[in-house]
Amino acid sequence: MPERPEVAPLPTLLRLMAALRDPMRGCAWDVAQTFSSVAPYTLEEAYEVVDAVARGDMADMREELGDLLLQVVFHARMAEEAGAFGFDDVARTIADKLIRRHPHVFDASGALLPEGGAGPSSIAVEAQWAAIKAAERRAKGAPEGAGIDPLGGVALALPALTRAEKISQRAASYGFDWPDAAEVIGKVREETDEVAQALGQGDPGAVAEEIGDLLFSVANLARHAGVDPEAALRAGTAKFERRFRAMAARLEEAGRPLPDCDLPAMEAAWNVVKRNERGG
């Protein structure tokens, strides 16, 4: 039996997506989708890529990247059907952006500069990238007579901690920032006191507002410390999960199922688990 000729994977994927969206012969579910209905899946697949990266699971990462690519292809196909743009336009746009934002690597045509190599330092490249992005935002412009939004372009759909970090970074680029992490710690303590005050007043709205201020300050602290707040929170949550399960297992082995335990018993087991983790 002759072997089938090798088919380029990306054109195959684009063809399959077009077939799935065919109103007469495609899949009813795929045909019924819209940008809005697909968007939550796009976000979910992006998180699953991040999860695979965190676990260092290369096989799973390959699969999850494919799922994420499918989301790009899906949106591009719907846009093509609407006469807006197609997948090639998406690829061309990001290629042009990469060339434009790496003037130390490519010339205007996209050819590699003869000097190549490391070029500017990482810090200089980051500053250059930010300046180019700011210029791009200005080039997009605003209605005549309106100013450019200094905090514009930070997606509302980002996780709240990530968006807080990005907004504070944008403000910092204008010089509106604390001088160092120690100053931010003072702000965190101030916000914690204000949370306590709001709790004492028994005002749920004020409590929610002050907790929001506290979380924003913590995101700023993470930025000053060079820590990704989302990654730090994921790691902290994973540590809590690990210790809670170990605590429950320890109590179960002692003949005390978790639902039958009081708080002092759980705290005692929790402290043992913490000491064991720390080798103490």
Rank of each mutant, 00 (worst) to 15 (best):
P2F: 12
R4D: 05
E6M: 13
A8R: 14
A8Q: 06
P9G: 10
T12Y: 05
L13Q: 09
R15L: 03
L16H: 12
A18P: 00
M24I: 13
M24C: 06
D30W: 14
A32L: 11
A32S: 15
F35C: 06
S37A: 05
T42G: 06
Y47L: 03
E48V: 03
V50Y: 06
D51M: 10
M58W: 02
A59S: 06
M61K: 04
M61R: 11
E64R: 03
D67Q: 01
L68Q: 12
L70C: 06
Q71I: 01
V72I: 14
F74D: 10
A76F: 04
A79I: 05
A82Q: 13
G83P: 02
A84Q: 07
R92P: 01
A95V: 08
L98I: 15
H102F: 07
P103M: 11
F106A: 04
G110E: 10
A111V: 09
L112Y: 09
G116K: 14
G117Q: 11
G119P: 05
G119Y: 08
P120F: 15
I123Y: 04
E126G: 03
A134Y: 02
A146F: 11
P150S: 14
P159Q: 10
A160P: 08
A160N: 07
L161Q: 01
S168T: 02
S173W: 05
G175V: 01
D177R: 13
W178I: 00
D180I: 01
A181Q: 00
E183Y: 05
V184S: 00
V184I: 04
E190R: 09
E194P: 06
V195F: 05
Q197K: 15
Q197D: 13
G200R: 09
G205M: 13
G205C: 05
E209D: 14
I211A: 10
D213T: 04
L215M: 13
F216R: 07
V218H: 00
V218M: 03
A219Q: 04
A222I: 03
R223S: 02
T237I: 15
F244E: 10
M247A: 03
G255L: 06
G255Y: 07
A265P: 04
M266K: 08
A268K: 08
A268V: 04
N271F: 06
N276L: 15
